[in-house]
């Protein structure tokens, strides 16, 4: 397989995953802005949305103030923003077009129809009441894409590179949401245990569609920080957790190793991250600092992504 093909498969899936995550982040932001009585701190919500989606710098270059309308427009439609939903779907589809030959018809048609429908949606039509429907639409299309990948692709190089992109993005996203929302928004000790606190934790879980799962899993009415963190980092039952993501990454890399009959440095790196997550204990993580832990993870995850690119000759 061409190195460029591998790279396009990787980025196609990465960007489709990103589109879904952006939709979730916006959903949470939008939800807060509709809350009656306006919970204190809601203005920070849009800032944290920008931070979690790594859009703050480009946003501030374009806009001087942070408002709901502007943030939504920037994250949904703005073509100057390389990580707007529109931009990432376009990039995903361009990558898919470039590797049409490596995709099943279902995968291609799923991603192509997403783009074809997306271009017919005009920013001026996106009134506030239509946003939730639109964000649902984005999530559904991302999931239909993923379903097509899982349900129709042969378990060969094509599939493995696509999985790598998908889960490296998901791990990065979950780590960043947890880090931004926890570290940046909840620094004041007086807030701990307050309504605001409970509310913020609920949001973190909602950003990864896990607020109900959390209740089922822990059977607990209160949100406990260490449990939320544990859920998103160390629980393999939780499909957006770091451990879950790394199990898939490791499986994909092992699949490649079996096909090629070779392992490389990226296999060692992924194995180290996986065992760090498997053997991790929340006491230790909180002791040494959740923020430091997450930063270290994000860096290691990025380093692995780059190493995969080097190993398999991504252009």
């Amino acid at each position: 397989m061409l190195g460029r093909t591998a790279s396009s498969l990787f980025w196609m899936s990465r960007y489709m995953e990103r589109a879904e995550n952006l939709a979730r982040l916006l959903e949470v932001g939008h939800r807060i802005s509709l809350m009656p009585g306006r919970i204190e701190g809601h203005r920070d919500e849009w800032r944290s949305t920008l931070l979690s989606s790594a859009c703050e710098q480009p946003y501030l270059q374009k806009h001087s103030e942070v408002t709901a309308e502007k943030v939504i427009d920037f994250i949904v439609f703005d073509e100057d923003n390389p990580t707007s939903i529109r931009s990432v779907v376009r990039t995903a589809r361009n990558n898919a077009r470039a590797v049409r030959t490596a995709l099943t018809r279902d995968v291609w048609e799923s991603i192509n129809s997403t783009w074809n429908e997306l271009v017919t949606i005009k920013p001026q039509d996106m009134t506030k009441d239509r946003i939730p429907v639109f964000l649902d639409w984005v999530k559904q299309h991302s999931m239909s894409f993923r379903g097509a990948v899982l349900g129709t692709m042969l378990r060969n190089e094509n599939y493995y590179f696509s999985q790598l992109g998908n889960f490296i993005e998901r791990a990065d996203n979950t780590a960043r949401i947890l880090d931004v929302k926890y570290f940046i928004l909840l620094p004041k000790p007086t807030d701990v245990g307050s309504d605001l606190d409970a509310h913020q934790w609920a949001q973190i879980l909602r950003s990864v569609s896990a607020h109900r799962a959390y209740r089922w899993f822990y059977r607990d009415s209160a949100y406990k920080p260490w449990l939320v963190a544990e859920f998103l980092i160390l629980r393999e039952e939780m499909p957006r957790s770091l451990l879950f993501s790394y199990q898939w990454i490791f499986t994909a890399l092992s699949g490649l190793a079996a096909l090629h009959g070779k392992t490389y440095a990226c296999h060692t790196q992924a194995g180290e991250i996986l065992s760090m997550l498997r053997n991790g204990r929340m006491e230790d993580i909180f002791q040494s600092g959740l923020h430091e832990y997450l930063q270290q993870f994000i860096n290691a995850n990025n380093a692995l992504s780059m190493q995969i690119g080097r190993t398999y000759n991504f252009p």
């Binding site: 061409l2 190195g3 460029r4 093909t5 590797v99 049409r100 590179f161 000759n313």
Partner: peptide
């Protein structure tokens, strides 16, 4: 394979493609 120019290169007098 569907190649772009950057996927191909010349070495030792032959044409090759960059693969994984």
């Amino acid at each position: 394979e569907l190649c772009e120019g950057s996927d191909l290169f010349v070495q030792d007098g032959f044409l090759y493609m960059r693969t994984t």
